[in-house]
Design a binder for these strands. Structure first.
Lengths: 121, 121
DNA sequence: TCAATAACTAACTAAAAAGTAGGTTATTAC
DNA sequence: GTAATAACCTACTTTTTAGTTAGTTATTGA
């Protein structure tokens, strides 16, 4: 067993999952990795179905775990931009793999995602 | 939006997560990938904390999604062995990446997993 | 000056995921 | 013949995760 930050993990896979698990985190990270859109409202517009509660909660956890960070563009009004930290960027191959594996899987099921792609703004 | 098997996905990342998401699936898959132990009781012994309910539930879902399969070694008594299908094997780079990224992360936090490794039977 | 937008937060509820406890059939090992 | 092991299943409860609704401060644009 591995104890880290008051949590117990059984193996390194478990450790990684502790940081990127859950319904939204990898989507947020992939979004930052791929689209380089980064304001709070960009996420809202591009992650269909996410609630604001989930969005700000997940952003906070990702910040806490130092996978993302934000620049405060202005205080009044409050304007920010999120970006991947070095640690967040180090997961780059993962984002790429998961995405292209998903595309292949869709192909196997006769859905041509590339052709049908009108999802993201 | 992508509709597949009565579920709605927003992008290929989401599709992949639909198959491997959750608390146990990647651990089970990694286990098959890495340790080549494959009976029901091997999983029980090597995934600390998993309940039997979770184990059989997750194994079933992974079978349904064709990431793993099993050989029936004998019917009476019931003896089986699980293994990764071709599809399950195609996620190999993912298992490797997640594991080694976890090890690096532990290193950054001054935990030498390799040195301390006495986790798996 | 009033609506829209940005970037949030908080209280509450609902749904999904996971855990607990117990049971089944069958075999081998002592 | 009794305990241990293997490979499960079922009903039920708890915990975790996620969704809903509403509210805040501040600015810009019509």
């Amino acid at each position: 067993m591995i104890t880290l930050n008051k949590k117990i993990y059984t193996c390194p896979v478990d450790v990684t999952l502790g940081l990127i698990g859950g319904k939204w985190k990898l989507l947020i990270l992939f979004h930052l990795h791929y689209f380089a859109k980064k304001s709070y409202s960009d996420f809202k517009a591009n992650l269909p179905g996410i609630s604001e509660k989930m969005l700000s909660q997940q952003l906070k956890e990702l910040e806490r775990d130092k996978l993302i960070a934000k620049n405060q563009l202005s205080i009044k009004p409050n304007r920010v931009e999120y970006f991947l930290t070095e640690r967040g960027q180090s997961l780059g191959p993962l984002y790429e793999f998961i995405s292209s594996w998903g595309i292949s899987y869709l192909m196997e099921n006769n859905i041509d995602y590339i052709k049908d792609q009108h999802l993201y703004k």
